[in-house]
Design a binder for these strands. Structure first.
Length: 233
DNA sequence: GTCCACTCAGTAAAGCACAT
DNA sequence: ATGTGCTTTACTGAGTGGAC
């Protein structure tokens, strides 16, 4: 209990009103925006990472309390600590962290929170396991769970497992959210760095229905002539 | 020799402004 | 509506140099 209060107080002390204002706009916390209602203390990520080292031994109960916070950076801290713990954990502890993560996805509710953790915890856990759960996440009504699913494949790509990026991108082709188009395009581009033929096969198949943003992100690393070709088809 | 801190270049995210 | 490129922030890896 004291620990939780101590951590939250530490973060409050580190906050900066100007940065908070900027973050609030950047992460779209206004009415009707994707981060509606989120509150910011105004702390830069490297500073959060320093605090994560300081509080790295926090147990899951503590991290759960931190994730409950209305303050964005308090949730970010919890996810950074959790991700660092996962990297160093034994297989059974990894199982626990993975389960904990999936049980708290309602608190992982902005793109930076997803992007700092999903590939490490979800990707790290599933890279050598059955990946069925990803397809449940990709089918979620939650924008963030869908983003978690795609972000997880970043770890697969680095392990040269490219299949799930393709399958998830196909499932998410008709997604309405720009943040999903961007994420899918990003992962397709990363996948293309490993196997450009597979990327082109995907593009040839879906060029007519792909969201424009997904396409533009995906082709970013192709030679200019090929990029032009895909954009004008 | 090892470790840590630092700098630098390259790359990435999202948002955004501007041109077409 | 679409394409391009800029801005801000952050991470990574390589290289450097000092402390021990």
């Amino acid at each position: 209990m004291d620990t939780i209060k101590e951590i939250i107080q530490t973060l409050h002390n580190a906050g900066d009103a100007e940065i908070a204002k900027h973050s609030s706009r950047f992460f779209k916390s206004g009415p009707g925006e994707y981060g509606e209602g989120d509150k910011f203390l105004g702390i830069r990520v490297p500073v959060i990472r320093q605090f994560a080292k300081q509080f790295k031994c926090s147990d899951l109960e503590t991290l759960s309390a931190l994730l409950d916070s209305d303050w964005h950076e308090v949730r970010l801290l919890a996810l950074v600590i959790l991700s660092e713990q996962f990297k160093k954990a034994s297989p059974p502890v990894r199982d626990d962290i993975f389960a904990f993560y999936l049980a708290h996805t309602d608190r992982i509710n902005n793109w930076d929170l997803v992007d700092c953790s999903a590939h490490i915890i979800v990707g790290g856990h599933l890279v050598e396991a059955d990946k069925t759960i990803l397809y449940t996440l990709a089918d979620s009504i939650s924008l963030w769970e869908r983003r978690i699913a795609m972000m997880a494949t970043f770890t697969f790509i680095r392990a040269n497992q490219l299949e799930d990026t393709i399958k998830l991108a196909e499932l998410l082709l008709k997604d309405k959210e720009d943040l999903i188009h961007k994420m899918c395009g990003w992962m397709l581009r990363e996948m293309g760095k490993r196997d450009v033929q597979r990327l082109k096969a995907f593009l040839d198949k879906h060029i007519q229905t792909m969201p424009r943003t997904m396409l533009r992100y995906a082709i970013e690393k192709l030679p200019k002539e090929e990029r032009q070709d895909y954009l004008t088809r």
